[in-house]
Design a protein around this nucleic acid. Structure first.
Lengths: 173, 173
DNA sequence: AAATTGTGAGTGATTAATTACTTACTATTT
DNA sequence: AAATAGTAAGTAATTAATCACTCACAATTT
């Protein structure tokens, strides 16, 4: 991966995430990345290929998150990590997550497969903690954390720590 | 409002919500609505004006929701209604809400003003119910319900009733 | 070691299609 | 007849994508 290729991917991520995929022209990506437009098509085939390359770069993050959770066997600690890591999304990753969340609403792009594995892991966790309805509990916390990420990315609220400790109390962590 | 104008608005809503605003051309809206493209500009000025008209049509829904909640003075019942009305979003309104939620991520379109009033109403509610941290509680339930709407619109999960009764238990409703 | 061949990175001009929008016009109400 | 609703054919700009091309460098041949 050359420097120019990295420039293209970085700028494409930024523009896709902030302006939207359809509203971002390949010409603008090229201009901002300081390369010729043709180079984008040479390396990534077409505009959709560019998007795929951007997403592929970030898939490692998702895998890393899942793996780190899988390795924590204490259910109480695992639940705590799921909650805390959502509150502590590094700000360098905001653009990437913003792209992921924006793409959800672009009909053809939505892919649920990743969250299915996470759901299963959480069901396991609540089962181990002897909750009454582990499946519903897993669904609840996923829905909650999904809304939380949305709030962090869009509204950047300052009361986050109060919300975090409230959740700790609620789950007795 | 003539029939053709209504056709335009209905198709614009549908296309903006499913394909995205930027990815929807005025030509396509006109074609699907069975009118000439010029008519769109005659009635709505420009593409953004068309979007505004679509959104204005749905603003009544938001006002109606807020008012009906405001008129319920029993805090426990009010909380119950906030939760239940989220679970019972009429499916005819899905396209509209999908558009609202998709537009959130389109940088310049995001407007937080509506949710601020709802937040205040919920803080009041939790204060009346003597919760420890009413502000954080209000934030929590808004984040939760936001994630819930997302789930309903995108994943259409079938376990919704189990989730609903879980929430009822959790808030002792 | 010199000459040749091959390759992937990168460019700038260009293409056909599509974009938002306009204009000149006609049909229909009121 | 005056205003409004509607159309069809245009506009200039922008779009994604392709084109023939140069350049630097490495592998192979002589």
């Amino acid at each position: 991966m050359t420097e120019k290729q990295e420039n293209i991917l970085a700028k494409a991520l930024e523009l896709f995430a902030t302006k939207g995929y359809a509203a971002t022209s390949t010409a603008k990506v090229a201009r901002e990345a300081g390369v010729s437009e043709g180079l984008i098509f040479r390396h990534f085939g077409n505009k959709e290929g560019l998007l795929s390359a951007v997403l592929a770069q970030g898939q490692e993050k998702l895998a890393a998150i899942y793996n780190s959770l899988e390795q924590e066997f204490n259910p109480r600690k695992r639940l705590e990590r799921v909650i805390d890591m959502t509150f502590e999304v590094p700000s360098e990753e905001y653009v990437f997550w913003r792209l992921i969340y924006a793409l959800k609403w672009q009909t053809d792009a939505y892919d649920d497969s990743g969250s299915a594995a996470m759901k299963a892991l959480l069901v396991e966790t609540f089962e181990a903690m002897h909750y009454e309805d582990p499946s519903a509990e897993a669904e609840l916390i996923m829905v909650l954390l999904d809304g939380l990420v949305t709030a962090i990315l869009l509204r950047k609220p300052k009361e986050l720590n109060r919300l975090q400790s409230l959740l700790h109390r609620r789950y007795m962590l």
